[in-house]
Amino acid sequence: MKRIFDAQLLGPAIALIVIATLVALTTDRFLNPGNLSNLSLQVSIVALIAIGSTIVIITAGIDLSAGSMVALLTMLLAEMLKFMGLPLPLAILLVLGCGLALGLTNGVLTAYLRIPSFITTLAGLIAFRGLALLFNNGSPIFSLDPNLEPLFYGSLLGIPLPFYYLVFFYGLAAVVMNYSKLGREIYAIGGNPSAAALSGINVRRVQTYAFAIAGFMTAIGAVLMAARLNSGSPNYGQTLELQAIAAAVVGGASLAGGRGNVLATLIGSLTIVVVQNALNLNAVPTSVQNIVLGMIILAAVGVDMWRNELSSKIGALFSFSSAKQRGA
């Protein structure tokens, strides 16, 4: 367990606790059970997508296509449920398969055709939303299936279902990234692709897998998005990819690759959502919210950079680098 809950989590966790405490002290309704359960609903979609974003970032890539892929997949799900009359479980499985396939496409273009991931997924960002508009003449599709909404709003033992999804997928991702061969290879190709190739790692294949995982997690997010609004729309998921990347970065992932931690990304997602929630509760306009979000990203990355310099100056006192770092 020491490996999963390592020093990488410490910084983001302290930041989250400080922010949450400040919010709790200044905003009465923050700690209401209703608000807290609303929070877990709010964070779930972006946090699930951020698992994939983080893994891609660790390989030194980036996935900009997630938000548009969500729009495309909600439309696909809506089309299958509403107009093709497919049973819900089958439709969901097909959507998950499509997400995986789109992720694989991103991966193959990046790894085997050697187009930088920024470009392949930028193309996806533009093209997937275009594809979404091809369904139903570009109009949203509403009232999909009575059994769809409970996937998002349902609860078990009084706890909303999305909470369980988060626990399941983050648990799985943390185990894969810290304990599996694939996880180690993902960190290796992000740390030094040439060294990874000379160590006998199939760099291209691992890179492709990372994008496939990202596509799959995006599909999970898309199903939940469709369930949340019981509809599909080509307008869903705008800037979702950027929020997911922001969550990873606030969690300490390095865009240079090789560094990042999925659980820290969960903390990063929570930090962003807690701040948004606090601003909402205090009726702060969206414009200011966005400015604040920008500041958080800058502060998170800045603190991460300065910490290294500080620790070399102040020594062991504030140094986290002496703690056991494994692939992170």
Binding site: Y179, S180, K181, L182, R184, E185, Y187, A188, G190, G191, N192, S194, A195, A196, A197, L198, S199, G200, I201, G258, R259, K324, Q325, R326, G327, A328
Partner: peptide, 26 residues
């Protein structure tokens, strides 16, 4: 093309022989 700057010694030592310490993918 040798070092993995993000790993401590352990990760650097086992990369070329990961299959030696892998059981069922883990």
């Amino acid at each position: 093309d040798g070092l993995f700057p993000n790993f401590a010694a352990g990760g650097n030592i086992t990369t070329a022989g990961l299959s030696n310490i892998t059981r069922a993918g883990f």
